[in-house]
Amino acid sequence: MTRYLFGDWDKVSERINASGRTLLLFDYDGTLTPITSSPGEAVFPTGTKQALAALARLGFTVGVISGRSIRDLKSIVGVKGIYYAGNHGLEIEGPGIDYIHAVSSLHIKALRDITGELKERFLDIKGVIIEDKGLSVSVHYRMANGPDILKVKKIFRDIVSPYIDSRKVGRFEGKKVLELRPPTKWDKGSAVKAIKRLIISEDTGSRAGDYCVMYAGDDVTDEDAFRVLGRNDISVRVGKKRSSKAAYHLEDTGEVVEFLYRLKRLG
């Protein structure tokens, strides 16, 4: 059972103040900004953008980790000097790092072939969006009519099953989205560890225990990040869920913005 973050704020703020350095990592959709019907409709609020930039200036290490492509993520968020991880961590950019996880041409070809099939089969079903993100592909069905959702899932399953059986792709599911990625163990948790290793290596004399990592996210893929955090780190689930690896929760994106402002006051 997660605890309400603001109800435990004195303890949380004490932990942040006591750390030598704090790494603040956030999911994007559903965490920093509300989920929209279409990925293209998401707008990053100016106040939230300014709060992230202010936290970076105050000495916090800031990053955004998303299922979006890194190009899309950087374009939307637009804060310089912070870390970005796209495609659930398969791409990472920021101070001192420009990383793309190694993916074989076989897996890339499978994703391209599947994308073509999906676009053809979903052409006549309203409300389905195919998002080709280079290293992954997503099928968004939030705008589909209720009776069509089972049909969408069946078509998706029929197309991708042979590729999954031959380990050419991996299948994942989130909030009203079906996703395909290369069958690798690299995920958002891997990205969290990679960014933490980098900043520790560049901070002479520091140790892993000197750092406090905070990660906030709202979806299934964020559980991968929660799993890699240690006892002195802070994991925050956004939204209500009975089971989560996170220690804390916030109700919605509005409370995430309030969290950002509370962090600013600590700085």
Rank of each mutant, 00 (worst) to 15 (best):
L5Y: 07
D8F: 09
D10P: 07
V12P: 01
V12K: 00
S13F: 05
S13H: 02
N17R: 04
L24Y: 03
L25T: 03
G30N: 08
L32E: 00
T33M: 04
I35C: 00
S38E: 12
E41D: 09
F44V: 02
F44Q: 02
K49R: 11
A54L: 15
A56V: 15
R57D: 15
R57W: 13
F60W: 00
V62E: 01
S69I: 05
S69W: 11
S69R: 02
S69V: 01
S69G: 13
G78I: 00
G78N: 08
V79T: 00
K80Y: 12
G81K: 13
Y84H: 13
G86M: 05
N87G: 02
G89C: 14
L90P: 01
E91A: 08
E93R: 11
G94C: 10
G94H: 09
D98M: 08
Y99G: 08
V103L: 06
V103G: 11
K109C: 07
A110K: 15
I114K: 15
I114G: 00
E117M: 14
E117Q: 12
F122T: 03
F122V: 03
I125K: 12
I125E: 07
V128G: 04
I129R: 10
D132E: 13
G134V: 02
H140I: 07
Y141G: 06
Y141H: 02
Y141L: 06
R142Y: 00
R142F: 04
M143E: 13
M143K: 15
N145W: 12
G146M: 10
D148H: 03
I149C: 06
L150R: 14
L150Y: 14
K151H: 13
K151A: 01
K153V: 08
K153P: 04
K153N: 01
K153E: 04
K154N: 04
I155N: 06
R157L: 05
S161W: 03
I164Y: 01
I164K: 15
D165F: 15
R167T: 07
K168N: 13
K176P: 12
V177T: 08
V177D: 14
L178T: 03
E179D: 05
L180D: 01
D187T: 02
K188Y: 05
K193S: 10
R197L: 10
L198P: 06
S201E: 12
E202P: 11
R207N: 14
A208M: 12
A208K: 04
A208N: 14
A208R: 10
V213N: 06
Y215H: 01
A216D: 03
D218L: 01
E223K: 05
A225D: 07
G230C: 08
G230M: 01
D233Q: 01
D233K: 06
S235N: 02
S235M: 02
R237K: 15
G239Q: 11
K240T: 04
K241F: 00
K241V: 09
R242M: 05
R242W: 00
S243D: 15
S243V: 12
K245C: 06
A246E: 03
H249F: 15
E251V: 14
E251M: 11
D252V: 10
D252H: 11
D252Y: 12
G254E: 08
V256M: 11
V256I: 13
V257K: 15
F259N: 14
F259A: 08
L260P: 10
L260S: 13
Y261M: 03
L263Q: 09
K264S: 09
K264H: 10
G267W: 08
